[in-house]
Amino acid sequence: MRGEMSVIVRTIARITYALILVFGFYVILHGHLTPGGGFQGGAVVASGFALLPVAFGAAAAKRYLNPSLMRHLEEVGSLAFLALGFLGIGISFFYNVLANSGSLFGAAVPFGPNSGILNSAGTLPFMNWAVGLKVMTGLMTIVLVLLIGAGKEGKD
C-alpha cells in the first residue's frame, strides 16, 4: 500500500502503540498526584495515535480515526472545561467547589510529602479529563487533517 513505511517501523509501531496510550492515560488520570496533567497526557496520547497514520499510511488510519468526530470531541472537551470553570461562579470564576467537601474527589490531604490519596483535589481531576480529551483529540485532528490534505491535492 502507498504511504506505508518499512516493516521495521510497522512492527515497532504495533508494539509501542499500546504502551504509549497506557502511559498517556495514566498521566491524565493521575494528574493531581504525579507530574503531568491534562495537557501533557493528552499530548502523549496524541503522539501515540499519530504513530498510526505515519507508520501505516493515511488510508489505513482513516478506517480507524475520523477527523470530523475528533473535531467534535475537541469542542466537547473545551465546553466541559468552561462549564467546570463556571461551576464555582457563585464565589469566583474557577473556584474549586468540590475540594475538601467530603463528596466525590473531596478528601482532604495532609500537609507535607505526597500522600497519594487518589480521591482528592475537587474539580481538578475533572478539569484534567476535559483538557486531556481536548488536547488529545485536537492534536490528533491537526495530524489527520494535515495527512489527508497532503495526500489529496496534486499528483506527482
Binding site: 496533567g37 491534562g38 497519594g116 482528592s120 483535589a121 475537587g122 481538578l124
Partner: peptide
C-alpha cells in the same frame, strides 16, 4: 494542599 486538596502543586496552580 489545604486549599485545593491536590498533592501536585503544579496542577493546583495550573487548574485552580
Amino acid at each position: 494542599q489545604a486549599e485545593t486538596g491536590a498533592n501536585n502543586v503544579v496542577t493546583a496552580i495550573v487548574f485552580d
